[in-house]
Design a protein around this nucleic acid. Structure first.
Length: 519
RNA sequence: GGCCCCUUAGUCUAGUGGUCAGGACGCAUGGUUCUCAGCCAUGAAUCAGGGGUUCGACUCCCCUAGGGGCUACCA
C-alpha cells in the first residue's frame, strides 16, 4: 500500500464508563489497520462532557486496551507530535478554530436559552415537522450581539448550515452517501461552558492530528454529513471513513448491560485469554475467508483488511467466544498453561495445598507424553517453578488436557487435588457410594493400594483390575465408586492418573472414609 | 415525525446472475473409552416477504415488514 507511512488512525473513547465490547472492537480494527499498513495508531480521550467523564473510566479504558495488547503510538500517557491527546487540554485549538469560523461568517453566536429551544422542539413535535433549530440568532445585528456579549449573556456557537445543496462522502464499507443540507440544521459547535461539542471537536482533532482514516461505529454515520461540512468550512482535507456495524445482544438490540457482560474488564476478571477475546472480537464483523477463524493477534495483523468488514450488525455470542478461548488455551504450551493455572490456584487460596502429596517415586516427566516441555531448564526462570507442587500441577494439567477449557473452571475442576472440602455431587454419591456392596469393595481396594510399593499409573491400574477379577466383578464396578470417592463426582480425567497424582496416602484415606460418611 | 443504515440456518459468516448455497459455534446421533472432555463420522437447520429486470436470481431495481442509528449545549 503506497503512502502507508502516512496512514494515521485513532481510537477516541470518551471516559464515561468502562471499555465495552463494541469500543474494544473499534479499537482493535483501528489498531489492526495501523499495524497492517505500517501506519500510526493514536489514542485520544474525548472528555468534553465534563459531567460524565471520570478518571477511573480513563484508567480503566487504558488498562483494557493494554490487556488486549492494543498498544498505541501516540496518546495521553506518552505524548506525540500532535498532542495533547485529551480534549479537555485542547481548548485553545477549538477556540481559535471557532473564532476563525465566526470571523469568516461560517458560524454565529446563539443566545437562545434552553427554555426557548425546548419550546421550539415541542412546537415542532406538535406540528410534526422536523426538529431543527430555526436559526433565529443568525439574524441578530452585530450591535445586538455586542450588547448581549457585554451584558455577559451566555451563548453557544452554531454552524451556519446552507439552506440548500447537498453533502457527499464515501464510506469504505458502505459506499456513497448523499445528504440534503435541508435535513441538517445549525448545530452547536461550542457549548455555553466554552467546551466544544463532539461533532466540532472530532473534526478539529482528526484534522489537526492528521487522521487519514476514521474507523468508528456506524452510530456516527448520521453525524458524518455535519462533519463533512466542517471539513469543507475549514478547508481541511477529508479523511476516509469506515463505519463499523454495531454489536448487538441476543435479542438483537444494542448490546447493553442487561445482556450480561459488556465490559472488557469482566472478561479479564473471568480469566478469559486476551488473545481469544481479540480473536473473537475480530470475527464480530470481519472475516478472512470461508475457512479460517482462529487467529493470533499477529495473524490478524497480517490478514486484516477493511474491505472484508461486514455491513450487518453482529450478535455477541458467548458460546462461540468460549469455544475460541478453549481453542487458544488448548494450543498453549504446557509450561504456560501451568503458570496460568498456578496463579489462579494461588489466587483462590488453593496453593499451598491443604495436604502434601508425596509422589511415592519421583515421576520422570520425560516418560509422560506431553510433558517434555516441563524440565529443569524451562522451570528455571521462576524459582517456585522448581517446586514439587509446580511439577505435580503440570502433570495434573497434562492429564486433564482438554477437559479444562476456561481458566475460571480451575477451582471447580482441580479442587479435589488441593483440598479435602472439594465440591461433592450428591446425586453421584447416592448412586455410586451409598450402596451396600460398595464399602467392602473400596476398603479392599484401599488395602491393596496401601501395600503397593510404587504408586505409579500402570501398577495402580493393575492393582484395581486384578482386585476386580478376584471379586469377579467388572472393573467399572470399582472404577466408578472409586472416582466418586476420590473426586466427589462422576467426571474426571483418567482415574489411574488421578490416583497417582492424589498420592497413596490421600487415595487410601478417601477410599476408606468416603463410604463411612454416606452409609 | 424526518433522514439514514442493516436483513444468508438459533448465532458468526462465505458468496457478488447459472453453486447440491460452503464453513464455524451451538444442537442431535453414532464410534473410541473407566466417566467426562477431546477426537472422528453423520445429521437437522438458512437466502425476511412481495413485485419486477433477465433465458436464468441469494446475488441487480422497487415496495413492504422487521431491527438499528441520528435528529442534544452526550459522545
Amino acid at each position: 500500500m503506497q503512502d502507508s507511512q502516512n496512514i494515521r488512525v485513532r481510537f477516541a473513547p470518551s471516559p464515561t464508563g468502562h471499555l465495552h465490547v463494541g469500543g474494544a472492537r473499534t479499537a482493535l480494527y483501528n489498531f489492526l489497520y495501523a499495524r497492517k499498513t505500517g501506519g500510526t495508531f493514536v489514542l485520544r480521550i474525548e472528555d468534553t462532557d465534563a459531567q460524565r467523564s471520570t478518571r477511573e473510566s480513563y484508567e480503566g479504558i487504558l488498562r483494557g486496551l493494554r490487556w488486549l495488547g492494543l498498544d498505541w503510538d501516540e496518546g495521553p500517557d506518552m505524548g506525540g507530535e500532535f498532542g495533547p491527546y485529551v480534549q479537555s487540554a485542547r481548548s485553545v485549538l477549538y477556540h481559535s478554530d471557532a473564532q476563525r469560523l465566526l470571523d469568516e461568517g461560517k458560524a454565529y453566536r446563539c443566545f437562545c436559552t434552553p427554555e426557548v429551544l425546548e419550546a421550539m422542539k415541542l412546537e415542532a413535535k406538535e406540528r410534526k415537522t422536523a426538529l431543527k433549530y430555526d436559526g433565529r440568532c443568525r439574524r441578530l445585528k452585530p450591535d445586538d450581539v455586542e450588547e448581549r456579549l457585554a451584558g455577559g449573556m451566555p451563548f453557544v456557537v452554531r454552524f451556519m448550515m446552507p439552506a440548500d445543496g447537498e453533502v457527499r462522502f464515501r464510506d469504505i464499507i458502505r459506499g456513497d452517501f448523499t445528504t440534503q443540507n435541508e435535513e441538517l440544521d445549525d448545530f452547536v459547535l461550542v457549548k455555553s461552558d466554552g467546551r466544544p461539542t463532539y461533532n466540532f471537536a472530532v473534526v478539529v482533532d482528526d484534522a489537526k492530528m492528521k487522521i487519514t482514516h476514521v474507523i468508528r461505529g456506524d452510530d456516527h454515520i448520521s453525524n458524518t454529513p455535519r462533519q463533512v461540512h466542517l471539513y469543507r468550512a475549514f478547508d481541511y482535507p477529508l479523511p476516509k471513513f469506515a463505519h463499523l456495524p454495531m454489536i448487538l445482544g441476543s435479542d438483537k438490540t444494542r448490546l447493553s448491560k442487561r445482556h450480561g457482560a459488556t465490559s472488557i474488564d469482566y472478561y479479564r476478571d473471568k480469566l478469559y485469554l486476551s488473545e481469544a477475546m481479540v480473536n473473537y472480537l475480530a470475527l464480530l464483523g470481519w472475516s478472512f475467508d470461508d475457512k479460517r477463524e482462529l487467529f493470533s493477534l499477529k495473524a490478524l495483523i497480517d490478514k486484516f483488511s477493511l474491505k472484508r468488514i461486514s455491513r450487518n450488525p453482529a450478535v455477541f455470542d458467548i458460546d462461540k467466544m468460549e469455544w475460541i478461548n478453549a481453542e487458544h488455551f488448548k494450543r498453549l504450551d504446557l509450561v504456560e498453561k501451568t503458570k496460568m493455572v498456578y496463579e489462579v490456584l494461588e489466587r483462590e487460596g488453593l496453593i499451598p495445598p491443604a495436604f502434601e502429596v508425596d509422589l511415592s517415586r519421583p515421576v520422570d516427566l520425560k516418560l509422560v507424553p506431553g510433558t517434555e516441555s516441563v524440565n529443569e531448564e524451562t522451570l528455571q526462570p521462576e524459582e517456585r517453578l522448581n517446586s514439587k507442587e509446580f511439577q505435580r500441577l503440570a502433570l495434573i494439567i497434562n492429564v486433564i488436557g482438554n477437559r479444562l477449557k476456561l481458566l475460571k473452571d480451575v477451582p471447580g475442576k482441580l479442587g479435589y487435588f488441593y483440598r479435602d472440602d472439594y465440591e461433592r455431587d450428591e446425586h453421584a454419591i447416592r448412586s455410586h457410594l451409598a450402596r451396600p456392596e460398595v464399602p467392602e469393595r473400596l476398603n479392599a481396594l484401599a488395602d491393596d493400594y496401601d501395600t503397593l510399593q510404587y504408586f505409579e499409573r500402570d501398577a495402580v491400574e493393575e492393582t484395581l483390575r486384578s482386585l476386580a477379577d478376584r471379586m469377579e466383578i467388572e472393573a467399572g464396578e470399582l472404577i466408578h465408586p472409586c472416582r466418586v470417592a476420590l473426586t466427589g463426582g462422576t467426571v474426571s480425567p483418567d482415574i489411574f492418573w488421578v490416583i497417582v497424582l492424589l498420592g497413596k496416602a490421600k487415595t487410601v484415606e478417601r477410599l476408606r472414609t468416603a463410604t463411612k460418611v454416606y452409609n
